[in-house]
Design a protein around this nucleic acid. Structure first.
Lengths: 125, 125
DNA sequence: ATACACGTTAGAGTTAACTCTAGGTCAAAT
DNA sequence: ATTTGACCTAGAGTTAACTCTAACGTGTAT
């Protein structure tokens, strides 16, 4: 039962299921400062909000596009420093998009390279 | 001075320079069985042929598209088992191309995700 | 009351892929 | 003859990102 002004939250196990990330990893990310807003109750138990889940999506996105956790932490920290880092964060994200575009080009080259090899092997038959 | 039937070879240091891979890494790859054909002279010094350099390109290609060194070794081993593994190797490479294509799609999704975030941040200005 | 499921921490262990160190050999240059 | 520089090996150390263990707390079900 949730009252109008109550915030829906999730335990670490629920988040693990929803986002397919182990509880170990979630605690590790929290420890590393990647999830600075996660609430705790009087027992010390974590309660993740929808906003925290969105952060997890952002972390996944940046991580899977080649950022280290250290770089992601830098972005998270910037965010919590507020408006004065806004330009910087926009720049960082634009930069990341450019990096991803380069990776895609690189991957396309690798496809061509492998296709050439496939052709050579096919001719050996 | 090289005679007609001499094979041009490179020392580990030359290969390191040419391919921008440290000598440490080259020895490590050799040790792991990723470069089974590298010749040695009477002193034990490695001599890399052009074919070895081509293998290094292949290793780089497979590694940078997500294969582990263990998986690459499997491919290398298959190759040296000769014609009977030809089909298998072609399959493996076709499979790798499909994986890369999926990665590219994934990366394109991440670009969209980041662009959305950039838009949100830009509207905060 | 006690068991069970789920949460907590601190700290140790794991894995892949390097990366380096120490101690050695050998060929060419001074 | 000795120094220099490039090579060698065995084995230790590093780094990132987990992954697990041990010992403990709490809330619900029987």
């Amino acid at each position: 039962m949730t009252y109008p002004d109550e915030v829906v939250t999730f335990t670490i196990g629920q988040v693990a299921n929803l986002k397919k990330i182990s509880t170990y990893t979630l605690r590790y990310y929290d420890e590393k400062g990647l999830l600075p807003k996660v609430m705790r109750d009087q027992n010390g138990t974590r309660h993740f909000t929808r906003e925290d889940l969105q952060w997890l999506d952002m972390i996944k996105c940046l991580k899977n596009t080649g950022m280290t956790l250290e770089q992601i932490k830098y972005f998270v920290d910037s965010t919590y420093q507020g408006a004065k880092t806004l330009e910087q964060r926009i720049e960082l994200l634009k930069n990341q998009v450019e990096k991803i575009k380069l990776t895609i080009l690189e991957q396309q080259n690798y496809i061509e390279q492998i296709n050439k090899k496939i052709k050579i092997l096919t001719n050996e038959k």
